[in-house]
Amino acid sequence: MIQQMYPAANHSYIYELNKDMQFAAAHYIPADEAGRCRKLHGHTYFANITIAGDTLDSAGFLVNFSKLKQLIHDRFDHSVLNEDAESFSSDDSNRFPTTEVVARTICEIVQRYLDGMGNGARCLQVYLRETPTSYCIYRPKAVSAHE
């Protein structure tokens, strides 16, 4: 992956890590307003996940990079996003696999994993590039005074 600078998420944690990855996936947007995107088509998505926290785990990681790849790449690479009924829906526009919803979904998947780690790490931002000229940034609302 080509090195790229990403917009920074503001926080006061002492550690921040970023994981870049790419995955190839197809999708369609089941809405008339989506125009040509109503038809099944594919992208090579480029994602950057920003995680921050104050406490490392017993191996000295905030989170293991390989676990992030397993959570996201292994789930979505070479898939049709619309077929992932746990994450996406053709009946609820808030769950159509748009770039915005895919970015939010990545954040939610990562945060669920982080919540189980017990070291208080937070997924602060997901940057998701769908095409060379189009990307989305998802930042969940702060959940504590720490951020």
Rank of each mutant, 00 (worst) to 15 (best):
A24H: 14
A24G: 13
A24Y: 15
A25Q: 05
A25S: 14
A25R: 02
A25K: 00
A25M: 10
A25H: 14
A25P: 03
A26K: 00
A26R: 07
A26I: 03
H27D: 08
H27G: 14
H27E: 08
H27K: 12
H27N: 14
Y28H: 15
Y28T: 06
Y28N: 12
I29N: 10
I29W: 13
P30E: 15
A31Q: 10
A31Y: 03
A31L: 07
E33V: 10
E33H: 11
E33W: 12
A34T: 03
A34Y: 07
G35Q: 11
G35H: 03
G35I: 02
R36W: 11
R36H: 11
R36A: 12
R36Q: 07
C37E: 04
C37S: 08
C37I: 02
C37A: 14
R38T: 09
R38G: 09
K39S: 15
L40C: 01
L40Q: 03
L40G: 00
L40M: 14
H41M: 05
H41Y: 07
H41I: 00
G42C: 10
G42R: 09
G42V: 00
H43K: 08
H43P: 00
T44C: 12
T44V: 11
T44L: 15
T44W: 01
Y45C: 03
F46M: 15
F46G: 13
F46V: 10
A47G: 09
A47K: 04
A47N: 01
A47I: 01
A47F: 05
A47M: 10
N48G: 15
N48L: 10
N48Y: 03
N48R: 14
I49R: 04
I49Y: 01
T50G: 11
I51Q: 01
I51N: 05
I51E: 06
G53R: 00
G53S: 06
G53K: 03
G53W: 03
D54I: 07
D54L: 15
T55D: 05
T55A: 12
T55S: 12
L56S: 09
L56P: 00
L56M: 10
D57V: 05
D57L: 12
D57C: 14
D57W: 12
S58A: 15
S58G: 11
S58W: 07
S58C: 11
A59L: 15
A59S: 12
A59R: 14
G60T: 03
G60V: 01
G60A: 10
G60F: 06
F61T: 00
F61H: 08
F61D: 09
F61E: 05
L62Q: 06
